[in-house]
């Protein structure tokens, strides 16, 4: 069984963790349906290092892990506050735009 290092609790068996998907900001609320569909259903599946959300079940703690998709090696794990500035800005950006506006959707294509 794989071992993952929780930034809060140290190394633990992987079955103590829950995967939370890739770290990607939500699309803009005004974005077209297509953008939301892609965000919901498509995830990039190439090689390279990916930033992922992981949750330590026992302590209820979400953190970020960087993992090499080719070797499945976990390169590092850290608290979300240490996320790269660009990601954090993008998240807050969506946040700011999202809340406090009415939501709209496109007309259904025939």
């Amino acid at each position: 069984m794989k071992v993952m290092t929780c930034p809060l609790n140290g190394p633990r068996n992987i079955n103590e963790f829950v995967f939370g998907g890739e770290v990607t900001p939500l699309p803009d609320l005004q974005a077209p349906d297509q953008a939301w569909a892609e965000h919901t259903f498509y995830s990039y599946n190439g090689t390279g290092v990916v930033r992922e959300w992981w949750f330590h079940s026992a302590s209820g703690y979400w953190f970020v892990a960087e993992r090499d998709r080719t070797t499945d090696q976990i390169i590092k794990t850290y608290d979300p506050s240490e996320l790269a500035a660009d990601i954090r800005t993008a998240m807050l950006d969506v946040d700011r735009k999202m809340f406090g506006v009415e939501r709209k959707t496109e007309e259904v294509a025939p």
Binding site: F99, V101, R103
Partner: peptide
């Protein structure tokens, strides 16, 4: 309201 979890998918 502007948002809830899954709102866009629900709307669609």
């Amino acid at each position: 309201k502007p948002y809830f979890n899954g709102c866009r998918a629900v709307d669609i």
